[in-house]
């Protein structure tokens, strides 16, 4: 036997990426607009979805990712929206979702009449950014209470997203936080990022978000 070095140069997450690409194709064919919501815990992802459903009547389905509990899925279903819960493990479970888990979930979901599919990823700005779940658009939600520095601390989540929703803007008068600085930090990490300032409490920015959903859906799925 002799020692041998085999040059490989293969993407470590290549298998995940392949399934993600397949999901993107399949959901495009079904004319379902698919968004992956990423953020820190407590930034307002679930509230954003329930408020969205109040504006868009019907056609929304949510895959909820959590390490534990079905609390968010319950909030979603209580708002009259279809939901499927993925729990990654009761103790020390994975802190992100992978494309194969979404694929398995979709096999169990009736997608008839679904026009918009949200994946509410596990609250964490590091791990979910690594794994392509096959979404048409990655949305990162950043609440103003998290401060100005998060885009610089977690660049991959902001670099891999196309839209950033700055949430809880109604709290700005009570915080020593500069909205201008938050936005400039986002842009320095990802100059192409679209930004929507939003308060689910006052409703500010919701119209812009709904318009974004409508126009992006048509553009990406090439709908009339």
């Amino acid at each position: 036997m002799e020692e041998k070095e085999i040059k490989v140069m293969k993407k470590i997450l290549g298998a995940n990426d392949e399934i993600a690409s397949q999901l993107r194709r399949e959901l495009s064919e079904k004319e379902i607009f698919y968004l992956n919501l990423m953020s820190s815990p407590g930034s307002g992802k679930t509230t954003l979805i329930t408020k969205t459903a109040e504006k868009i009547k019907g056609g929304i389905f949510v895959i909820e990712g959590d390490i534990q509990t079905t609390l968010d899925a319950e909030r979603i279903t209580n708002a009259g929206i279809g939901a499927y819960q993925i729990n990654t493990g009761p103790f020390g479970g994975d802190c992100h979702l992978e494309s194969s888990w979404i694929k398995n979930a979709l096999n169990e979901i009736n997608l008839e009449n679904v026009e918009i599919l949200f994946v509410e990823n596990i609250g964490n700005l590091v791990c979910p950014a690594e794994f392509d779940v096959g979404a048409h658009i990655n949305v990162v939600v950043l609440s103003v209470t998290e401060g100005e520095d998060k885009p610089l601390k977690y660049p991959l989540a902001f670099r891999n997203s196309q839209l950033c929703i700055i949430s809880k803007t109604d709290l700005l008068p009570y915080l020593d936080v500069s909205l201008r600085k938050i936005k400039s930090n986002i842009k320095s990490v990802n100059p192409q990022m679209e930004i929507i300032e939003l308060s689910a409490k006052t409703g500010k920015g919701l119209k812009q978000w709904i318009e974004f959903l409508s126009s992006s859906r048509k553009k990406i799925l090439r709908l009339p």
Partner: peptide, 11 residues
């Protein structure tokens, strides 16, 4: 984020 190479004994 790549595997660059593997080293090992060949059968």
């Amino acid at each position: 984020l790549h595997i660059a190479s593997l080293e090992g004994m060949q059968n």
